[in-house]
Structure formats: structure tokens, C-alpha cells
Amino acid sequence: MKPHHYASHHSTQAATTLDKLPARAVAVISEVHASHHDGGALKRRLLELGFVPGERVQVLRRVFAGHGPLAVRVGTSTFAMRKLESSLIEVIPA
């Protein structure tokens, strides 16, 4: 796992969560938070899928004018993510 020093490289950009990024935005994952309802299972699953600190992530598109799932690319994989999952991923826009 890569160290969490990415915030210092992007100090002009404030951290936000993946669900708040616009379409085509690129960011670097700074942290993955645990959901309050599942004992950390969703966080573990996101980490297993490659949503790890230091990894670049891109929002490819937003479905239903931002009210539906996001199409997200991390590494070479593309995922459809609900707001719940994407709101747990803290990012720093690139």
C-alpha cells in the first residue's frame, strides 16, 4: 500500500468524496472510510477491488443527472457505483 503523503502534493485542492466529483474528473484516493452499518465489510470490498490510497480514479459518467450510479475507472477496471459506496472514498482532485 502506498503512503498517505499525496495531500501534500496536491495542497491546492481540497479533499472531497468520489460521489461529489463531476463527470470526467480525475482524482487520487486519499482514504477509504468504513460504512457505519456493516462493520467495515464494504470498506474491505472496496479495498479488494483496487480503491486503495494513492490510486488514481476517474469518474467516467454520472447516470440520471447525478442521481443514479457513477461509472468509475480505477486502474484498468470500470465499475458502476452507488452513492453509498462512492461517498466512502475520499479523494483529492488531480
Rank of each mutant, 00 (worst) to 15 (best):
G50M: 08
T17I: 08
M81W: 02
A41M: 11
R56L: 10
T16S: 11
R62G: 09
R62F: 06
R82F: 09
Q13L: 05
Y6L: 11
T12P: 01
H36G: 12
T12V: 10
T12D: 14
M81R: 00
L70I: 01
G75H: 08
V52L: 13
S35M: 10
L46I: 10
G39F: 08
S86N: 02
S30G: 14
E31V: 03
L18T: 01
M1Y: 06
V72K: 02
K2D: 09
A25E: 10
T17P: 01
R73Q: 15
P69Y: 13
P22Y: 08
V59Q: 03
G54E: 13
H36V: 10
R82E: 15
K43Y: 01
K20P: 01
S11H: 15
S77C: 11
S8C: 04
S11E: 07
S77V: 07
P69Q: 12
V52H: 03
V63R: 15
E85D: 10
L49C: 07
G54W: 07
T78I: 10
T78V: 12
A71S: 14
S87W: 02
V74G: 00
P22L: 08
R24N: 11
T78L: 10
T16K: 05
H10A: 07
L42F: 03
R61T: 06
V63H: 15
K2T: 13
L46C: 11
F64E: 14
A7R: 07
V91Q: 09
S77M: 12
A14H: 12
E31N: 13
V52F: 02
H67K: 15
L21H: 08
L46R: 02
G40V: 11
G66P: 12
K20C: 09
L46V: 11
E85G: 06
T16Q: 12
G68P: 06
R56T: 13
F79H: 15
R44C: 06
L70P: 00
I89Y: 00
L42H: 04
H67P: 00
H67V: 04
S11G: 05
H36I: 08
L18S: 02
L47N: 07
G68C: 10
R44Q: 15
S11L: 12
V32W: 05
T78H: 08
I29M: 06
S86F: 00
P22N: 14
R61I: 00
D38F: 12
A34L: 05
Q13T: 11
A14L: 08
V52I: 10
L18H: 03
R62M: 08
R45D: 07
V91R: 00
A25L: 02
H33Q: 13
A34Q: 14
S77A: 14
H33A: 12
V57C: 04
I29H: 00
H37F: 13
A94W: 06
T16P: 04
R62A: 10
L18M: 09
G75F: 14
A71R: 14
V63G: 00
H4R: 13
M1N: 08
A27V: 05
L47W: 01
K43T: 00
I89T: 04
